[in-house]
């Protein structure tokens, strides 16, 4: 097997707040191959963005701190790099685009200025060359009239167009990894589909690996090869799209799948949803973090924190004590959730 592009090992990122230490990311490990498209899914507050910001080296002490872990990117541990070295990776080899395109661009500079800034910085080209590259980048994201739009300010673009600009900016330096943090959450549904489509094609053409952060399993299905599900700062399950959709091993994943509104289901009927709220990241419960909301919890769940371990299909991993005994796949296919669940737990 070739060396992975990105290897995260036991990453822990904590924030010091007045109420106490927020364990936003608490010991996660995963790998990404070159060109892999990986979905990071979880409720809001589960640590997805903090994971991304940690990889980008944008966690700023003293408020936040990566307390342990390694983030090995192309053979280099990013956490050991100096700020200068990190700057050449940021935007150059790892690019990131954010949730809200309306506020992600600086309102007082033109699109061209902001695009060319990145290009000049990372590619050591002249202004004129940078301009050409910028125009091409805008054309690639299908912005009409690119050479003129270059002189426009962000407020002259719609939300979808701005997100295209962000994608152009992200891809302009041909990064190895593009992190997209909920890139379509702020957009309307039709625009969402267009943007995802665009990203899919651009990433595929260039072989760029993409980490797609979202709380929407539906978006992941059409885009990613692999998925990791996060809950309360940890990864609770990971595997291929197929594994996750058709053979979930963790009750939380199963719950997420159930709470998806199925477009193919005319009744828009939700199979089951997860009640309750995620735990406070300051005072995490003993044992399994999902336990307070888990309908399958037993005594061991209360005492022992389950670790991520191979279970289910080859390559699939889950962090649940009861993966083997619960047949979640059967439960979700049956649709007779209430009866089946109470049967299992009793």
């Amino acid at each position: 097997m070739t060396e992975p592009l990105l290897k995260v090992e036991d990453l822990r990122t904590y924030f010091a707040t007045e109420e106490g230490v927020v364990r936003a990311v608490d010991g996660i490990s995963f790998e990404m191959r070159r060109g892999e498209r990986r979905g990071v899914v979880g409720e809001s507050g589960s640590g997805k963005s903090v994971t991304a910001m940690s990889i980008m080296g944008l966690i700023e002490p003293p408020a936040g701190d990566i307390v342990t872990g390694r983030i090995v990117f192309d053979g280099q541990n990013l956490l050991e790099l100096s700020e200068d070295e990190m700057q050449s990776i940021r935007g150059g080899r790892i690019a990131m685009i954010f949730q809200d395109p309306m506020t992600a661009l600086n309102p007082v500079y033109t699109i061209g200025d902001q695009l060319m800034e990145t290009i000049v910085l990372h590619q050591k080209v002249s202004k004129a060359e940078a301009r050409e590259i910028a125009i091409q980048a805008l054309r690639d994201v299908q912005i009409p009239n690119a050479e003129h739009r270059l002189n426009d300010y962000p407020h002259q673009f719609s939300g979808g167009m701005r997100q295209r600009v962000m994608i152009a900016m992200g891809l302009s330096c041909s990064p190895d990894l593009l992190i997209a943090d909920e890139p379509t959450t702020a957009l309307d549904v039709t625009t969402q589909a267009q943007i995802m489509d665009l990203m899919l094609h651009l990433a595929e053409d260039r072989g760029t690996a993409v980490m797609l952060i979202t709380h929407d399993l539906g978006v992941v299905a059409g885009f990613c090869d692999t998925v990791q599900v996060m809950y309360a700062g940890g990864i609770v399950e990971s595997g291929t799209i197929d594994d996750i959709y058709h053979n979930p091993q963790h009750p939380y994943t199963w719950g997420l799948l159930g709470s998806m509104t199925r477009l193919d289901d005319a009744t828009q009927h939700r199979l089951h949803s997860i009640s309750g709220a995620p735990p406070s990241l300051i005072k995490l419960p003993e044992g399994c973090r999902f336990r307070p909301r888990c309908q399958f919890a037993t005594d061991i769940c209360r005492q022992v924190l389950p670790v991520l371990r191979p279970v289910g299909n080859p390559g699939q991993m889950a962090a649940c004590h009861r993966s083997e005994e619960l047949d979640l796949k059967a439960l979700s296919v049956d649709g007779e959730v209430g009866a089946a669940a109470s049967e299992v737990t009793s």
Binding site: Q87, G91, A104, Y109
Partner: peptide
């Protein structure tokens, strides 16, 4: 604390440039 400053950082701009060009002007 604005989003566009986060973008500027994510681009890999040096800190001084972020402050002088992107923050100060606004």
């Amino acid at each position: 604390h604005s989003d566009y400053l986060r973008t500027a950082k994510a681009k890999g701009l040096p800190r001084r440039r972020i402050i002088v060009k992107h923050a100060l002007r606004n």
